[in-house]
Simulated assay, not measured.
Amino acid sequence: MTNRRDLLKLSALAAAAATLPTLAWAAQSGAVGRAAKPLNILILGGTGFTGPFQVDYALARGHKVTLFNRGKRPSPEWSGEVEQLHGDRNTGDLKALEGRKWDVCIDNPTSLPFWVRDAGAVLKDNVGHYLFISTISVYADGSKPGIGEDAPLGQYKGKDAMAETQENLRADIENLYGPLKALSEAEARKQFGERVTIVRPGYIVGPRDETDRFTYWPHRVAQGGEMLVPGDGSDPVQIIDGRDLGEWMVRLAEAGTYGVFNAVGPEKTLTMDAMLQGCQAATGGKPTYTHVAPEFLEEQKVEELPIWVSAKSGPYAGYGQVSNARAIAAGLTYRPLGTTVTDLMAWFRSQPPERQATLRAGITHEKEAELLKLWRARRA
């Protein structure tokens, strides 16, 4: 059963995203209009999950794009020219950024405050607008529906936040991820003042998602047969297509929009049953759904069901009900669920057979069958 630990792993899991040879799924359907004013955009990262969508959309809008990263991943085949700069923020090697100016900086991979501090030392006088991808895991209390951007944030309880490393974060992600992201937000404001946009996504899904957290559901629906569904089907689910997130961030840069925004979707409430029905319509699968009580799953210590969070119990019930009103007012739009599912499954089925053979999230068929058998016996 999904809990906050899963949400806290968003950044670490997304960092494992592999690159595609092309970006066939990058831009919105149809032609992308040119921006009124071309920008010179620096993207920190840019070759992970959402970064390539930002790059390709920015190019389509007529912007100039520079990437800064370690150069460890091969870059996709962009639709235009992209400047590549290399360095290592872990070691403070930002020399490639010195003496350069950009209109906008989009910071994708940062989970450690000293990364923001060091970037600010080089860029604060050379960048007009700084956009930072944070997370809804910054909130101190995830139990209340309708969490807004002004809700209290989690507090760091360690000795020295600036001394935290990726190794420390991985070792204690449940206690460190949210508070360190919150401190990274604060450091962004310290370095860049009011010229900051903080974007807090939840579950990012769609093509290029190497975590398989959302992929598990359309993949399982497509297989058919009796399918275990957690809860009674009414629990709300919040997801955002990585393309919607990436493209919206470029539009925020174009508009010069500052502030803090929860980047969750869809626009209207999506229940667990509605999500599965959307997956069924998109994949053509014909499963039969068996709803299983959250209490039974807790009793059986089932923790592998991704995306879903029970809205009726537990300290993280509100995580499927975060308010996105401010983001929608600032222009965040959403692809239809069917488009996300169709494109995701097309991408997934284009992966090597060994990649498709074992999903990285969800329960196995054997465990599902065992749980369904126990559930039927309990109900008899």
Rank of each mutant, 00 (worst) to 15 (best):
E81T: 12
N108D: 12
W78S: 00
D103A: 09
S75D: 11
G62D: 03
T110H: 12
L59S: 08
P76S: 02
P52M: 03
R70E: 08
E81R: 14
P52V: 02
G87F: 08
A96I: 07
H63T: 06
D93I: 11
E98G: 14
H86S: 12
G92V: 14
E98R: 15
G46P: 01
H86T: 13
L97N: 11
H86L: 09
L97C: 09
I106S: 02
D103V: 11
K64S: 11
G71Y: 01
S75P: 08
L85A: 09
R73C: 01
S79A: 13
G48C: 03
R100N: 13
L85C: 08
P52I: 01
D103K: 08
F49Y: 06
N90Y: 14
R70Q: 07
I106R: 07
T110I: 14
G92A: 15
W102K: 10
E98M: 15
D88V: 13
R70M: 03
L67N: 03
V55M: 00
V82N: 03
W102S: 08
V104Q: 08
T66C: 05
S79V: 10
V55H: 06
H63N: 01
A58E: 00
K95R: 15
N90K: 15
A60E: 10
P74R: 06
V104I: 07
Y57K: 05
K95G: 15
L94Q: 14
P76M: 01
D107L: 11
G62Y: 05
W102A: 11
V65W: 01
R61G: 00
V65E: 00
V82M: 06
L97R: 12
G71V: 04
T47I: 04
A58C: 07
H63G: 01
S79G: 15
F53Q: 06
K72V: 11
N69G: 05
F53H: 02
P52Y: 00
T50E: 09
L94Y: 15
T91Q: 14
